[in-house]
Nucleic acid binder design. Structure first.
Lengths: 196, 196
DNA sequence: CCTACCGATCGGTAGG
DNA sequence: CCTACCGATCGGTAGG
């Protein structure tokens, strides 16, 4: 049974990547040592090498797992026939929910990918560029339809992705801003900002 | 005798912080060694300690200089009597232009501040929280005036700041998206997204 | 899973 | 500004 996209947190690899996501997000990839990670899990550092060949390999698993989730979702959106504005809204809501449900991994994928070694770095950047180009295509189509106002599609993609990428999950409890309210408000601002 | 040392462009400290901003942005603070920085400047690593007491001190200079520029600008905006929507637009344009003109330093201030040592870390976080609270105040006032649509002010601040913070300056030349177009389009999306 | 350990590199200091 | 150098810590390996 193929399980490529999901990491089961029950497996040892899953435990490691989950702890690594938290540490990489909090301290950054470079400032997190394998000893830090081992201590957080409760083993000695060399034991980690029974599950991953290197520190970089852990980062790869995190970044490409998240990239695959986004790509898979976009495939589904493109398959389903619907107005372009509805596609954009679906994508925006998916991104927001990824931030809410997989915060640490998405954060690492967004901020620490530059530490990937070649050839994974180029692969990741290509996937990222491709993903954004596909979003820009949808926005261009929406502009032609007059569903969206005339803006540079690249600027629109950048605005959407970075606005959502800046969500700081830890503030939710502090400010009593609950998840649904955040989603509703951010969708409102972005969709109203874009629509004709 | 090195002629670069005292040019009109700035002091040696200025040369160091500028090179450090580029390296910290490209490789991250932790992955940049004092030897990397020294080599980029053309000196040996120990020479840097004639100008800064530690690697962290260089990060402090970058982060607090940027924080001061934003705080100073916000003071001016608050002083000047004008509609709340106009205040927000002025602030948005200032943030965009900071990204365009001081990209590397702003990027470092946005992404690498977590590596500041105490007590500077707490100081920085307090300034940041205070700055955002003041933006939220303006937005709340604008909502009361019916200049802005009713959204959670904190979500609005987050959306504005992270959208702008995600600007990737290097794409401008690649995509032939010039600076004025980017500014105009991003302001359009955000202001239309917010206004009543 | 562990202990023992390696070479490389780090931030920083001494001294001139 | 430099050379010489230090103790700490790093990612990773050997071997059981």
């Amino acid at each position: 049974m193929p399980r490529i996209l999901t990491t089961k947190h029950g497996t040892k690899k899953g435990v490691i990547t989950k702890k690594a996501s938290r540490l990489f997000k909090e301290k950054g990839f470079s400032a997190t040592s394998m000893r830090d990670l081992a201590e957080a899990i409760g083993v000695e550092a060399p034991s980690l090498y029974n599950h991953f060949g290197s520190k970089n390999e852990i980062l790869q698993e995190i970044c490409f797992r998240i990239a695959n989730l986004f790509n898979t979702h976009l495939n589904e959106v493109e398959m389903h026939i619907q107005p372009d504005l509805a596609k954009i809204e679906t994508i925006i809501r998916f991104h927001i929910n990824m931030m809410l449900n997989e915060y640490e991994s998405v954060y690492v994928s967004d901020h620490e990918w530059k530490h990937l070694p070649e050839p994974y770095l180029s692969n990741f950047k290509n996937q990222r560029r491709g993903y954004r180009a596909r979003l820009a295509e949808i926005i261009m189509a929406g502009i032609k339809n007059k569903e969206l106002k005339k803006v540079d599609p690249y600027v629109a993609v950048l605005t959407i992705l970075s606005a959502i990428g800046g969500i700081e999950i830890w503030r939710l409890s502090k400010k009593n801003t609950d998840a649904k309210l955040l989603e509703q408000n951010m969708v409102a601002i972005l969709i109203h900002g874009l629509k004709y």
